[in-house]
């Protein structure tokens, strides 16, 4: 079920990217798409009745059923890269507002 929700999130983000005209809304759509992709990649490694891939004093041996740790490591780095791109996009949006006085990409060329 969560897998299909992730696909719907990706679709909504793509639709927002294609139709929105406000720059902040475009960055928000990009964030929604990113959350959907992260959920989908983590769900690829999920095992029913598995446990988190961490050795503790309770789950203390490698014979137990762990979920796949590799997608989680990839998503961990993807989230941090997402912050970098979002910050850069917002800085660009701030500069665009100072130059044109609007966030709307249709009104920019008219001045």
């Amino acid at each position: 079920m969560l897998q299909y929700a992730a696909i719907v999130l990706i679709m909504l983000g793509l639709y927002g990217l294609l139709t929105q005209r406000n720059i902040i809304k475009i960055i928000i759509s990009l964030n929604i798409l990113e959350i959907g992709v992260n959920l989908f990649i983590v769900s690829v490694g999920f095992v029913t009745d598995g446990i988190a891939p961490i050795f503790t004093s309770v789950n203390n041996s490698s014979n137990l059923l762990f979920v796949d740790p590799l997608p989680q490591a990839l998503v961990l780095t993807a989230i941090v890269i997402g912050v970098g791109t979002t910050a850069l996009g917002l800085a660009l949006a701030k500069n665009i507002y100072q130059k044109y006085g609007t966030f709307d990409i249709n009104e920019m060329g008219e001045e």
Binding site: G45, S61, S62, F66, V67, L70
Partner: peptide, 27 residues
């Protein structure tokens, strides 16, 4: 939920025994 982790490369990361003779790793 039906993923078989034992056929993936991740199983090697979980059993990190240096000699490779698939001993059990105990906390």
């Amino acid at each position: 939920g039906d993923v078989d982790v034992t056929t993936r490369v991740s199983q090697k990361y979980i059993e990190r025994d240096v000699n490779g003779n698939s001993e059990e790793v105990v906390f």
